[in-house]
Design a protein around this nucleic acid. Structure first.
Length: 428
RNA sequence: GUGGCCUUAGCUCAACCGGCAGAGCAGCGGACUGUGGAUCCGCAGGUUACGGGUUCGACCCCCGUAGGCCACCCCA
């Protein structure tokens, strides 16, 4: 047993998985580019206050999942690893005066996030997200555009059965009234509530709506709906978002009980959800509008909307459907040697070919020729360059591993021969 | 953070009621000393996750720890 292992909730992404993640990041970057989002980088950690104020002090993410760093000195500020990207991006937006940029400012971040909670499949302490934010546009069209971009990501990544869940949770004008109404409703039925739900009633009554307790189903169904309580402006915004989605053909379902865990959301909230998935990996990503967040982090009042898509969960979904990324492309040629000990000759020839831009693997293990060819075949190389005594006359054997044929080629023409062969291979 | 299940070779898994820790795959080598994906043979790989306890004797029973998974909490 090795004495060291990856920390709990983290894992090594071995080449197959790593290239799968890379592929997803490539799709994300391509989409971001097509939709006009510019990629940026933000620190992996921030002052704890950025998250506390931005995400909300009483959210689970801040209360129990924040990865807090031990201070180095008494005077040091409190730092924490980023549990999500939105707060950091908005902090950067304010810090760099992006309110003077052409609005909206559309930004994207791809990278690892950190949350200190109990790990499970598809749920890690270090996980990868694609995050996109459009800051500075209050209109419903940008909401729909963003929801479409996320939906398209799953389509292009090849995740089956993704559903868009949509809701509006109102704003400062109408939500307080709704919350009062909702709280009053559940208070009237407090005696029927399970213990856990009773505690939620005080902490975060909205959460009662997506309770998984079967005993709650009837109560929740009869509870007042936020959709019926939206103020005129919020209702109009919601209707417009839906009209835009329908116009561009993004399928969605209004989910009146969809509330999200972070404090900063206003109006539009949405979630990408995988139908038929077992367990906790159904939520693939989510987002929403946060019209008060920029102000909360010290900027001028500026509306914004964003999403965060969990790449690990996509990887998991693709793994289940056996649609993972293909293995590494095979080398054009493998350089092998008749003399197992002469690695210098092999490395020299490989170096020569690589300098010409060719994809060539050098078999450097000191094994006999048969074994070298065996691994070359297993790697699905098109050619083997066999180096033997002919090298003294400036020649090598070029063997076509698929056809089984071989011929003598002058070393000086080898690169050209291989390049031409590669071309004809690719053309069929 | 709460409750439950699990952990045997790099991987997938065996091992009767508590009685000598095994196989397939992968790796390496040989058959085949300058010619490959097949086949056959061999080699290596283990403190049975870790630490304690019970027992003549523990992979097996008990306790603890770590890790994984499942259901919650919650989220990606």
């Amino acid at each position: 047993m090795p004495s060291f292992r990856a920390p709990r909730g983290t894992r090594d992404l071995l080449p197959d998985v790593s290239s799968g993640l890379n592929r997803l990041e490539g799709i994300a970057r391509s989409l971001a580019g097509r939709y006009g989002y510019r990629e940026m980088e933000i620190p992996m950690f921030e002052q704890t206050a950025v998250f506390e104020r931005g995400i909300g002090e009483v959210t689970d993410v801040v209360e129990k999942e924040l990865f807090r760093l031990a201070p180095r000195t008494e005077e040091a500020e409190a730092w924490a690893l980023r549990p999500e990207a939105t707060a950091g991006i908005v902090r950067a937006f304010v810090q760099h005066g992006m309110q003077t940029w052409p609005q909206p400012v559309k930004l994207t971040v791809v990278g690892p996030m950190f949350r200190y909670d109990r790990p499970q499949a598809g749920r890690y302490r270090q996980f990868w997200q694609w995050d996109a934010e459009a800051i500075g546009d209050p209109g419903p069209a940008v909401d729909a555009e963003m929801i479409e971009m996320g939906y398209r990501f799953y389509v292009e990544a090849g995740v089956p059965d993704v559903q868009v869940l949509l809701n509006s949770i109102g704003d400062g004008a109408c939500r307080p009234a709704y919350l009062a109404q909702l709280t009053a409703y559940f208070r009237r039925h407090e005696a029927e509530l399970p213990e856990l739900e009773r505690r939620r009633l005080d902490a975060n009554p909205l959460r009662l709506l997506d309770s998984k307790d079967a005993a709650m189903a009837a109560l929740v169904a009869a509870a007042p709906r936020i959709g019926d309580c939206l103020c005129e402006a919020c209702a109009a915004h919601f209707a417009a978002v839906r009209a835009h989605l329908e116009a561009i053909g993004v399928p969605y379902r209004v989910e009146p009980t969809l509330v999200r865990g972070l404090d900063y959301y206003t109006r539009t909230t949405f979630e990408y959800y995988r139908r038929g998935a077992e367990g906790q990996q159904q939520a693939l990503g989510g987002g929403g509008r946060y019209d008060g967040l920029v102000e909360l982090l010290g900027g001028r009042p500026t509306p914004g909307i964003g999403f965060a898509l969990g790449l690990d969960r996509v990887l998991l979904a693709l793994d289940e459907t056996r649609a993972m990324a293909a293995a590494m492309a095979p080398p054009l040629a493998v350089v092998v040697g008749a003399d197992p000990a002469d690695t210098i000759a092999r490395l020299r020839v490989a170096s020569l070919l690589r300098a010409e831009g060719l994809c060539v693997r050098a078999e450097l293990a000191q094994r006999k020729l048969g074994r070298q060819l065996e691994t070359a075949s297993r790697d699905h190389a098109h050619f083997a360059v066999i180096i033997g005594d002919e090298l003294n006359e400036g020649h090598v054997q070029l063997k076509d591993l698929e056809a089984g044929t071989q011929r003598l080629v002058p070393l000086g023409e080898l690169a050209r021969e291989l390049a031409r062969a590669a071309k004809s291979h690719h053309h069929g």
